[in-house]
């Protein structure tokens, strides 16, 4: 990717989608993002089952017989010559993360408000980099993760892949 211009934005840290975990009890998925710059860090985001599946399909580079919703958005971008430049996790309020999708066409840049799940599902298909602002990294919510891990331990579900988180 080209160098990212981030004039008025807080400094951004690049992450990639590491894996998707299933939380069968609540029918949610956990998207685990892993930091890209050498610092060892993972960043979990809770999403709905459908949203998690949309990300998983792209992560596994599965080709579906018919275009899924985010494939359609990519198709719009291709038809209209819109470049999906990057997605950024920009904020966290009451354990809800906020994201923006940065798009450009003929020198015009636009920023679109989005749920992180849509942003990430699109980033994997574009493909384009995924960033988290330093501010969000500082204010990240660990409540959910702790609660989830506590529940996991109490039920003694031995899912080895979650131990790193």
């Amino acid at each position: 990717m080209d160098t990212v211009d981030q004039p008025n934005e807080q400094s951004l840290v690049e992450y990639r989608v590491d894996r998707i975990l299933e939380e069968a009890n609540t029918d949610t998925r956990i998207v685990v993002l892993a930091r890209q710059d050498g610092v060892l860090d993972t960043f979990p985001i809770w999403v709905g089952a459908a949203e998690g599946n949309a990300i998983k399909l792209a992560l596994d580079t599965m080709i579906t017989p018919r275009p899924m919703s985010h494939d359609l958005i990519k198709s719009f971008a291709e038809h209209l010559n819109i470049t999906i430049q990057r997605v950024v996790i920009t904020d966290v309020k009451s354990s809800t993360y906020y994201a923006t999708v940065h798009v450009a066409n003929k020198g015009l840049e636009r920023t679109i408000d989005s749920r992180p799940s849509d942003a990430i599902a699109l980033a994997l298909r574009a493909p384009c980099p995924i960033y988290i602002t330093q501010d969000v990294l500082k204010r990240r919510s660990t409540t959910n993760l702790d609660a989830w891990l506590a529940k996991l331990e109490s039920k003694d579900i031995g899912a080895p892949e979650v131990q790193e988180t």
Binding site: E51, A54, F76, A77, V101, V103, N105, D113, R115
Partner: peptide, 18 residues
């Protein structure tokens, strides 16, 4: 409260007036 996938899809098209 937050844009669902098709609301985002609309914003995506609206961003360039499609």
């Amino acid at each position: 409260p937050r844009p669902m996938t098709h609301d985002f899809m609309m914003s995506f098209l609206d961003a360039f007036n499609a």
